[in-house]
C-alpha cells in the first residue's frame, strides 16, 4: 500500500486495517505521535489528514491511501505549524509533554482552517485531553499563534 507522510511516499506491506498510529510509530519509527487511549478519547495521536485533525489510533491505514498525512515530525516545515510551535514555546505550554504533539497538531489544523479563531472556535477545536492540566496555557498559545 502507498501512503504519503510528510510529503514522502512510503510503500508498505502491512495489514490494511492497521491503525495509522502504529504504522507511524512501529513501522516508520516516527514516535512523535503518541498512543494514549487507542479509542479516540484523548487526542494524543492527532495527525493531519488532508489538513484535518485526525485521531490516528482509530484510522486504518487503508483509509489514508491517497491522502496527505502530516505528523508532528514535519510540523515546523509548515508555516502555520512553525507559528504554533513558537507560540507553544513562548507560552511554555508543556508539562510532561506527552499530550502536546497532539495538541500542537490540533492547533495547526485549526489555524490552517480558521486563521483568526474566536474563543468559541478554540474551545470547539482544542478538545484533546491533558492530564497535566495545561488547558489554559494551550488556549493562550493558540491565541498567541493566531496573532503572530
Amino acid at each position: 500500500m502507498d501512503i504519503t507522510i510528510n510529503g514522502q511516499l512510503h510503500q508498505l506491506d502491512i495489514e490494511p486495517d492497521t491503525p495509522l498510529l502504529w504504522v507511524l510509530r512501529d513501522e516508520l519509527g516516527m514516535t512523535g505521535t503518541k498512543y494514549g487511549c487507542g479509542l479516540a478519547q484523548c487526542g494524543a495521536c492527532t495527525v493531519l489528514v488532508d489538513g484535518q485533525a485526525t485521531r490516528s489510533c482509530v484510522t486504518p491505514l487503508e483509509a489514508v491511501a491517497g491522502s496527505q498525512v502530516m505528523t508532528i515530525e514535519a510540523v515546523t516545515q509548515d508555516p502555520v505549524g512553525q507559528k504554533v510551535v513558537d507560540a507553544w514555546v513562548a507560552q511554555q505550554v508543556a508539562q510532561c509533554g506527552y499530550c502536546q504533539s497532539g495538541q500542537v497538531m490540533a492547533a495547526t489544523a485549526l489555524l490552517k482552517q480558521t486563521p483568526k479563531p474566536s474563543d468559541e472556535d478554540i474551545a470547539a477545536a482544542m478538545i484533546n485531553l491533558c492530564r497535566c492540566g495545561t488547558y489554559n496555557a494551550i488556549a493562550a498559545a493558540v491565541r498567541h499563534a493566531a496573532q503572530a
Partner: peptide, 15 residues
Amino acid sequence: DIRDKSTGKATYAID
C-alpha cells in the same frame, strides 16, 4: 525541555 516537547522530539519509555 519545551521545544522538544512541542515538536514530538521528547522521548518517553514508550518511544
